[in-house]
Design a protein around this nucleic acid. Structure first.
Lengths: 335, 335
DNA sequence: GGAACGATTGCACACGCTTGCAAAGCGGGT
DNA sequence: ACCCGCTTTGCAAGCGTGTGCAATCGTTCC
């Protein structure tokens, strides 16, 4: 099966009886072509099924139109929705997403960034892991733009988009307090992403300000199964918490299921739960989880608008707010 | 911010004191280079941060290494897991996934395929929608490989991967029968994908063979919310079904939640439910949904192995089996 | 009619890479 | 010493574009 079958501008030019440059210009917005030439070219192109070769164009322009999304566990609800929002946004700016899957290891993120470089991506958006500084430097030096989402470490020249996790944690605590809760716990994974840690630390700090203690438990990664284990550990105890703030909606779902099915606790009467992310399942009637909504759409907008912003960049960091979505996993305030 | 900052093979060659071809060959597996030259080149390359330009390489070789994944609603659990499996698999073959989001419309799929052509993708994998024949023909003529997953329509030269939906539907019916169910329903969306329809038709046909009737209800798309509406319609009736086969796990979750919370039915005692896909949530203890597992990994393997298979292709179609995962949403057979 | 001017167009080079081809190097066998 | 065969290397052509530059064309104005 031969392969050099794509039709080229040259063939279109011959068919249309014009020079090759005319073809090129026809497909270059803002170039100078007469209406007649353009017509003949587009016609010939259509007949032959010609499409500009973006690889060659990228070679010339030093601008491939490719943006790499570097992400691990992308089948997780929150990640998936973010990836979707980003690809949509990119497409609307006539860029295209190259999806690179990593495991949690930073070395695989390094590997992914090298891929990005090889394909001369205009930018890379990192949703998981933290690459080595030498690699990010290389990216930046190569003229690539870099966006870090929810990774706190600094990289000069990269755009960092973060949430106000601490603020959210404080709100969570006051929601619990208004509901009359007395004993607080935080259910975390062992992943220790800065943003996850900020939730934990923020929750603890807010409690301490009120003279309250928080039991922190950590286990595994940010999954439903971890939530199951965490809940078992927490609810086994003598003094069970009556309020659990979870690093994550998935964990929260696991916690709720164990609380209800295994310990026969009623949510929110016996136990209040707050999650984070507002994944789709949080709204399902089995959970009705009160949680913080990540501004996924806004994250995508900010990330992508920064990519196409050709001015020398000033703002390198956004801290976006989250919205507390009230559902049924926290008691109504006693009025 | 200037842009032509990527280091090229020429610079590496100068630094290493060799010809530019030597550099090229160093990075071409199987090319003839002496150990010494290779060493000097890799060293220089490393120092300068050189990475082969895949755009230019693709231009020469007529092989970009890019594979387009064309998909709608990719934040849906099943889709997300498939996308993940595919990207992983592709990466392991040192290909890379370009992710294109479409809405349900076929025209947006056409658009996506044109993108694929523009980037000279080696192949396109279509997970949603059905593109116009003229476009797929163009793709094939251009030497692009095409994989259609779960879309039944024929396209000569494309690989089609389907599930044995009908067979699964039959198994669902006999599972219900063994559980002693009497009144059967099928909860479908209005999407009418061939594969969804096969489940419906297969279920109905199997029932008819036993002289039984199936109530079919269709609504919306294949989401949790549709499941909610479908369940309301079905359970409102005089004669409620005591067995519902759902086109989809998401629908099944919606159905179960409505059955339990709104109609106070016990699953599986009052109502048996079977889903399809085996999404992660099906295993959550709030659902414990008995469902058919799609062989996601195998789909990915088959799709990708076909892409790198350079022999003239013979087999153009796979029909893969599904596995019934027994959980708690169907009664045990009375022994 | 001629000049001046702007809009089009074609030529040719550049982008960074691969690869066929021929020249060069190297070693061994006679 | 010579020749043969194999490996290594450099040269240069080509992949499909974009674009600066100069040439051409058509129009308007005096």
């Amino acid at each position: 099966m031969s392969r050099k079958i794509y039709v080229s501008a040259k063939e279109v030019a011959e068919r249309a009886g014009v020079s090759r440059s005319a073809v090129s210009r026809t497909f270059t917005p803002g170039a100078s072509v007469s209406a007649e030439t353009r017509r003949r070219v587009t016609e010939a192109a259509h007949e032959l099924g010609y499409h500009v070769n973006h690889l060659a164009r990228g070679l010339m322009r030093n601008e491939s139109g490719i943006v790499c999304l570097i992400v691990s566990e992308m089948d997780t609800p929150y990640r998936a929705s973010l990836v979707r929002a980003l690809t949509r946004r990119l497409q609307s700016q006539s860029k295209v997403a190259m999806l690179i899957n990593t495991d949690r290891s930073d070395s695989s993120v390094d590997q992914a960034l090298k891929q990005a470089i090889s394909y001369r991506a205009d930018a890379s958006i990192i949703l998981s892991g933290m690459p080595d500084r030498s690699i990010t430097d290389l990216c930046l030096r190569s003229g690539q733009r870099l966006v870090l989402i929810n990774r706190d470490e600094d990289r000069d020249g990269a755009l960092m988009i973060n949430l106000d996790d601490q603020e959210a944690a404080r709100r969570a605590l006051s929601a619990f307090l208004e509901a009359g809760c007395r004993s607080f716990a935080f259910a975390n994974s062992e992943v220790m992403t800065p943003s996850l840690m900020a939730r934990e630390v923020g929750f603890q700090a807010a409690a301490r300000e009120k003279g309250l203690e928080v039991t922190v438990e950590r286990y595994g990664s940010t999954t439903y199964q971890s939530g199951v284990v965490l809940a078992e550990r927490m609810l086994e105890r003598e003094h069970r918490p009556d309020a659990i703030f979870c690093a994550n909606d998935l964990i929260a779902c696991g916690v709720m299921d164990v609380a209800r099915h295994r310990y026969k606790l009623a949510v929110p009467e016996d136990l209040c739960v707050i999650g984070f992310d507002n994944i789709e399942q949080a709204a399902w009637s089995s959970y009705q989880l009160t949680t913080f909504a990540q501004p996924v759409e806004e994250i995508a907008v900010r990330a992508v608008e920064w990519l196409s912003d050709h001015r020398p960049v000033e703002i390198h960091s956004h801290r976006l707010g989250t919205q507390l979505i009230w559902r049924g996993s926290v008691r109504e305030a006693k009025s």
